[in-house]
Simulated scan of single mutants.
Amino acid sequence: MANHHLGRGVTPLSLALTRTGVTAAISHTLLHWFGPLGPYAMLTVFFVLAAALTQVVSNVAAALVLSPLAIAVAASNHWSPDGLIIAMIVALSAAPITPLANKVFIMAMGPGHYKYRDFFKIGLPLTLVMFLLTVVITPILFPFTG
């Protein structure tokens, strides 16, 4: 229920970022820094951005902010946005570096007597494995060129 309300609250932010040109400015910056390195670098950027952002905001909010960026970056390069979106989705769902990455983790902390470092110890290696799998498999299943 909380995510439902959060999604409604962040959707206007996502639209505002796009309509005011902030999304375009950020996508141009990403293209300037990472575009020359190619689509795999951009896939990496979106995975890392999503994994980092989901540690501090909900995955719904992160998706609503990052999706327009991924679409803009892909459009600028004449790529299909599918690979960037999939990389983002995987990172938002499989980056348990802190308990804040998922509300279920926070609920488990008390009864399990877990600490932040416990999530980091298992979450960082798991996130790295998911990153490697995502970078290898995503372009095969969702090629950059349509």
Rank of each mutant, 00 (worst) to 15 (best):
R19H: 03
L132P: 00
R19K: 12
G83R: 13
A16P: 07
T98L: 10
F105S: 14
R19D: 05
P12R: 07
L133Y: 01
I85P: 12
Y40I: 00
M109N: 07
D118Y: 13
L126E: 07
A108G: 02
A91R: 03
V73R: 01
T127K: 06
I86C: 10
V22W: 14
A70G: 13
A51K: 06
S76G: 15
T29W: 15
P143H: 02
H113D: 04
P68S: 02
F119D: 06
A61H: 13
L30S: 06
A87G: 14
L132Q: 01
F46P: 11
H32D: 09
A94Q: 05
G21Q: 06
G110K: 04
V129E: 04
F46A: 13
I137C: 04
V10Y: 10
A94P: 00
R8D: 11
T11G: 01
H113Y: 02
S93N: 06
T11R: 06
N102T: 03
T127A: 01
H78C: 04
P96G: 10
G35R: 04
L30C: 14
F142I: 01
H4C: 06
L124N: 03
V10I: 11
V90L: 11
R8W: 11
W79S: 12
W33Y: 10
T134N: 00
L31Y: 01
V65Q: 12
R117S: 08
A62G: 09
A74D: 14
A95H: 11
P39T: 00
A70N: 10
T54A: 05
D82W: 10
A101K: 03
I89E: 12
S58V: 12
P39C: 02
P143G: 12
Y40C: 03
N77P: 00
I137W: 03
A75C: 05
M1E: 15
S58M: 09
A41D: 01
K121N: 07
P36V: 00
T44N: 03
L30T: 04
A91W: 08
S80C: 11
T11N: 03
F47Y: 15
T11L: 13
H4W: 10
K115S: 08
G146F: 07
R117V: 09
M42H: 00
I26R: 02
A52D: 14
P99Y: 07
T11C: 03
R8N: 13
P12Q: 08
A63K: 01
L53E: 15
P12Y: 05
P139D: 02
M1F: 14
V104W: 13
L49V: 05
H5N: 14
L100G: 10
M42G: 01
L43W: 07
P39I: 00
V104A: 15
G9E: 15
I106W: 00
V90S: 11
V45L: 15
A16E: 15
P139I: 07
D118L: 15
T127R: 11
L92P: 11
A75P: 00
L69P: 12
I140A: 11
P81G: 04
A70M: 12
V45K: 02
